[in-house]
């Protein structure tokens, strides 16, 4: 393993710069997500974590640098093209379609897919992962509780059969018990073979399920190491783990 992170990457960012408004939000980010693993990105509010995900997805395009997905440059593509390659994001704040039913929200997750039978099977799969969504399938997304919306957001992302799942603050605003459930599910999804890039403020939780971790500060990656090592790191402990 080299300095930058694990080898054999499904996603690789090389010196990516992004401007958000007039702010130079990402100042040369480099990181790698291994196929099959969970990598987390931790850091304080406003460090540029969400911008990193939005840049990967093409919503906030990179001004400079290179993003490779499965060896293919994607930094010049539009969001829908990137999505069609199999990168799926669960954005911060869940972003449920409030006036569509749970079922319709899930169908939108499978928007790019044409295989009806496969979609039906995956629908059953996410229903078994989150049984409450099956109960609520005809309810409008906007009327679900926060936890249910988070499950729906993750389920919706899974409906696209992602080759890489990006999660932005899945624990935000949820009760501790629910957070634990969500993180269990994330591990379960990963065990089924989907690599995961996890952005979190809840550093303890995130590092405990990840193989590798990155620490971000004001647009730069300041630390990169195995998650277990970061958990022991004095600096990280002081700044992000509240010890």
């Amino acid at each position: 393993m080299n300095e930058n992170g694990p080898a054999k990457a499904v996603l690789q960012l090389n010196e990516v710069h992004t401007y958000y408004g007039r702010i130079h939000a990402l100042k040369g980010i480099s990181c790698r997500i291994p196929s099959g693993g969970i990598v987390c990105l931790i850091g304080a509010n406003g460090a540029g974590k969400s911008t990193t995900l939005m840049t990967i997805c093409g919503v906030q395009p990179a001004a400079k640098g290179e993003i490779l997905f499965e060896g293919r440059p994607i930094h010049r593509m539009r969001p829908e093209q990137i999505a069609s390659l199999g990168i799926s994001q669960v954005p911060e704040g869940r972003q449920i379609f409030p006036l569509m039913t749970t079922l319709e929200n899930l169908e939108m997750g499978a928007y790019l897919r044409k295989d009806r039978d496969g979609i039906k099977r995956d629908l059953e799969k996410v229903y078994s992962l989150f049984p409450v969504l099956k109960e609520r399938r005809n309810q409008l997304g906007g009327t679900l509780s926060g936890g249910e919306q988070q499950m729906l957001a993750i389920a919706r992302a899974l409906m696209s059969r992602p080759r890489l799942l990006l999660l932005d603050e899945p624990s935000l605003g949820l009760a501790p018990l629910l957070v634990e459930r969500i993180f269990d599910t994330i591990q379960e999804i990963n065990r089924a073979g989907t690599p995961i890039f996890l952005v979190e403020q809840n550093a303890q939780m995130a590092l405990s399920i990840s193989g590798w971790g990155y620490v971000m500060e004001t647009g730069r990656i300041v630390l990169a190491d195995r998650a277990r090592a970061l958990l022991e790191d004095e600096q990280v402990k002081k700044a992000y783990l509240g010890e």
Partner: peptide
């Protein structure tokens, strides 16, 4: 012109 300025700046770097 904020957005354009920004993207120009970004492109200039």
């Amino acid at each position: 012109h904020e957005e354009e300025l920004e993207s120009e700046e970004a492109a200039d770097e």
